[in-house]
Amino acid sequence: MKDVLVICTRNRSADMVRCLESLLQQRRMPLKVLVVDSSDTNETADLSEEFRSQKGLPFLEYVHTAPGLTLQRNVALRMVRGEFDVVHFVDDDVELEPGYIDELLNAFEKDASLVGAGGLIKGGNRTKASLVARLGGRDSVHPGKVLPTGFNIGAHETPFDVDVDWLPGCSMSFRLEMIDGLSFDERRVGYAIGEDADFGLHARTRGTLRHVHSARLHHHQSPVNRHKRPLIVRMAVAHRWSLAADHPVRVRRAMVVYGTLTESANYLLRFVVSRSHDRLWWECCVSGVAGLLDIARRRA
């Protein structure tokens, strides 16, 4: 099975070193590594050339693009379609365990209905679903689900294989023939929150998506290029509203509003009960409401 591993990156050359070093330890190497970079400097280009010419990755190809995660992913898809059977997308701040690629390819080879697969993510920050969060439509005891509110639940460290609705962007592989014609939504610009859930729901209409627990990686979650939490809360509201527009059977607008309001109420409660009245929770509460107001203004 011919496969290519894609790393979309921006200004994270230090994180890329660890990612590429872990790639060298794979039991089964991809036929090609494609680095799609939108950095402001030449550091990632120089690093890619070093690994290509000196450190054992002669099949590494580097390309520079305009910034934007969805744009970069689409550039990669256009470059690899028709040449490979499987594309692996991983983030630049992950560290692959030696069997990662081998286990994913085994899953594709064993199940012809498998359109996509992702691995077990260590460091995914997945916590046990509380009753309050479940009643608020923000969490579930079932891993890998996209809920009617638009909140997407990761499988992350689930210690068994399970079919899912979406694959996390730091660990998602697809059978290229089965996603022919699909692309990432470039209306989701910059940090492009939720592009993985949106693409996963589209891909799931073509076949099965699966969390493969034996394919393992560590997500170190680099602080570079990450937004502050209140801004992510506000952006997430727009993401969930977009899911309701594009996947109305799975996600419903009324439920998006409900989930956002219960989330804001939860942040408000945290602010009230915290001894120091941590303003982070207040800002997150306000951001959720602001996200709903953004939607209302656009619809007016």
Rank of each mutant, 00 (worst) to 15 (best):
S222Q: 14
D37A: 02
P58M: 13
R81E: 14
S130N: 09
S22M: 13
K55I: 01
E95S: 07
L268P: 05
C19N: 13
F51Y: 15
T158N: 06
S287R: 14
T208I: 15
V286Q: 13
L147Q: 05
A300H: 01
Y191L: 15
N266E: 15
S171F: 13
L69A: 07
V212Q: 03
R299C: 03
Y267F: 14
R204F: 12
H202V: 06
V132I: 11
V146R: 04
F184W: 07
V289K: 03
V141F: 09
P98H: 05
D111S: 05
V251H: 00
R187G: 11
L217N: 00
K145C: 00
D198G: 10
D161V: 06
Y62W: 14
D37R: 06
Q25S: 11
L217E: 01
R126G: 05
G82S: 07
D40Y: 06
H64A: 14
P30R: 12
K228L: 13
K122I: 09
D102G: 00
V289A: 06
V233L: 01
E97A: 10
R138D: 01
H219N: 10
D165E: 04
E283D: 15
H220L: 11
E50F: 14
V94F: 02
G190E: 14
V164H: 00
E283T: 09
G144Q: 07
H88M: 04
D278Q: 12
N11W: 07
V272N: 02
V132N: 08
L47Q: 08
E109P: 02
L243K: 01
D165I: 03
M16H: 02
S183L: 06
G82H: 08
S264Y: 03
F199P: 10
L131H: 09
R27Y: 07
A236V: 08
V33E: 10
F59T: 09
G123V: 10
H247L: 00
V162K: 03
V237C: 02
Q25E: 11
R81F: 12
A254C: 04
I295S: 00
G181A: 08
S53V: 14
A133R: 14
D165G: 01
I179H: 01
N266Q: 15
G150E: 01
T158G: 00
